[in-house]
Amino acid sequence: MSDQNALTPRVLIVRHGETEWSKSGRSTSFTEVDLTAAGAAQVSSAAAVLVGSGKLIDPCHVAHVFVSPRKRAETTLDLLLPPSSDISKEKITFTEDITEWNYGDYEGKTNEEIRRLREDKGWDKEQEWTVWSDGLEEVTDRLDKLIVHIKSIQEPLMDGTEPADIVLVSHIFHGLK
């Protein structure tokens, strides 16, 4: 195969479509929240532009797909890469490794509500709370594990002779907004 036609391994990250909670800025980890009609339309519109032969996500170049097991990510996968996309079920793994982090008592609350709650308890006097204040180590550990797994899939394919794209369908952590 010539270098011109070599397949460069990529990792493509797709965030789930809009939910009522993401629309209102509510922290969502384990609560199952459906996509809104607008969220489903977002994914369908993106799929029409991004997925297909010769497009950014070309199903024949996909080596594996990792999906958060949350309903909003599963629905996004179904809209993005329907069975007609020719990506076999064997190439799809549902994994907790790319779920949103656990917001615990902050589940369903906005960042402003969390800050008020923490202020009422007398916390964060030295520095204002951010989503990065809690739980980052647990998320980092999960993502490090996934990176090792992705590397094990892509490493033998680095010569560019076989498909090596990895697609992640996840949450891209609410706090990144």
Rank of each mutant, 00 (worst) to 15 (best):
L136R: 12
V131M: 09
E113H: 03
T110G: 02
D144A: 14
H171P: 00
D165P: 04
L157P: 01
T110C: 02
F173H: 12
E137R: 02
R116W: 02
W101K: 14
G135H: 09
I150T: 10
E113D: 10
D124R: 11
P163G: 12
K109V: 03
K145S: 15
E119T: 14
I92F: 06
K145M: 10
R118N: 15
G160Y: 02
D159K: 08
K109Q: 14
D97F: 13
S152I: 00
K109T: 11
I166Q: 08
S170I: 03
W123M: 06
N102V: 13
N102P: 02
D141L: 14
Q154E: 03
G135W: 02
V167P: 03
G135R: 05
K151L: 04
E162N: 05
K121A: 15
E155L: 04
V131H: 12
D120T: 02
E113C: 05
H171R: 03
D134H: 12
I166H: 03
K91L: 02
M158C: 08
W132C: 13
V167L: 11
D134S: 11
I172N: 11
I147D: 05
T140G: 09
S170P: 02
Q127W: 02
R118I: 04
Y103E: 10
R118Y: 13
K91Q: 10
E100R: 01
K151Q: 13
F94Q: 08
P156K: 09
